[in-house]
Design a protein around this nucleic acid. Structure first.
Lengths: 199, 199
DNA sequence: TGTACATCAGTGAACGCGCGTTCACTGATGTAC
DNA sequence: TGTACATCAGTGAACGCGCGTTCACTGATGTAC
């Protein structure tokens, strides 16, 4: 890892690593070309061997953050069995990610003027959608509702994560029972029936 | 308005006006001290007579954007009669504001290191909360649920506004029926019962 | 197996620019007497 | 009603800094023959 020879260093990975490390600490503040080049002890120009522009670099770091989120969601899902629990685990993990890693979360959804070099893998959106498709397979929602349900649940979780992790004095409290209450209300919005009736 | 004399101009208002104008066009990109001072044909130092720092100026412009949002929500509410319609009008207006004024919306919730000089007036959050309190007065929700419901509905609407107004290729479609579907699902999450049963 | 050479992946210095902020200073306004 | 003077609200130039990007160049690697 420390073998920073003149040549043949895995500079791209090192830049992304440094970017993620910086993102954790201070969000999207210090993700510039010169700053990160200095961080990995490299000339600024070297960055352009691997990224088309500073925006491209930022976009790839943002992607790293999203993929980390996706991995945590996948990990959380693996511990649950019922489709409802699996679905709620994705939302809970999403919110916890935003609260535990505010810098990384803000970078994950920062606006970039350039696209990343490849598609997200794993993709947090796909993980979310898959858990909705599972609800569909179980007959809890109809196939035609999949897109609507995904958008609704994603929006509610994403909005809560943004607001609770923000600095507004009126922001929602980030307490477990509040989060569970939110997930419960999302569930009502998904199945459109009260749980008691469903049972 | 054009009386830009040496002295006695309402520079503070002019700066905020220019900031809002710039925010509409390009979000939070060009809200710096030097840029806005130049925009209103004034020396940069003059800005510091009215704002403690560049961050303070940005915070006040952000506040202007939030207050504009709040005014539109109030206006929309005034056309509705039933509490449900009034509530949904706030959410619909919030989303439409984000879609029609993406720059202003992003500035409204941009992170600022300094607080604004006064409280929001009108406050979008208060408008939202008031419409939830109306639901409570009508007996549709319990008093103890007010905070939970406000957080849930605010999160869902805010998240949808952020995602739909973003640049992600997987973002929700910004079509009326999608938005109405979202508002309907939020309503289920609020009352926790299907509408048919309620009637 | 050795060598010539193209290519790759970096160096190091510099550019123009806009940023937030500060300096000493000044023209206009308001007020006390 | 006039005047002296404090205060207010600006000017204009400059600072140090970090930004994205570009220049010509070079050390290391890989490959054809």
């Amino acid at each position: 890892m420390k073998t920073q020879k003149y040549h043949h260093g895995n500079l791209e990975a090192a830049l992304l690593e440094a970017g993620v490390r910086e993102a954790r600490i201070s969000g999207s503040k210090n993700l510039g070309v010169n700053a990160l080049a200095k961080e990995v002890s490299v000339s600024p120009m070297a960055v352009y061997r691997h990224f088309s522009s500073g925006e491209g670099l930022k976009a790839s770091i943002s992607q790293q953050a999203r993929e980390e989120l996706a991995r945590r969601m996948i990990e959380a899902i693996s511990h649950e069995t019922s489709v409802k629990e699996r679905f709620e685990a994705t939302g809970r993990t999403y919110i916890q990610f935003a609260l535990n890693e505010p810098g990384l979360f803000s970078v994950a959804f920062v606006a970039c003027e350039a696209p990343p070099k490849r598609e997200d893998s794993p993709s947090a959106w796909m993980v979310f959608q898959d858990s909705v498709l599972d609800l569909c397979n179980e007959g809890l929602i109809q196939a035609a509702e999949v897109r609507q349900v995904t958008d609704f649940a994603w929006a509610a979780v994403h909005g809560y994560a943004n607001l609770a992790g923000g600095s507004d004095p009126m922001r929602p409290k980030a307490e477990p029972e509040i989060i569970e209450g939110l997930l419960e209300r999302i569930w009502f919005g998904i199945v459109k029936e009260s749980v008691e009736i469903k049972k």
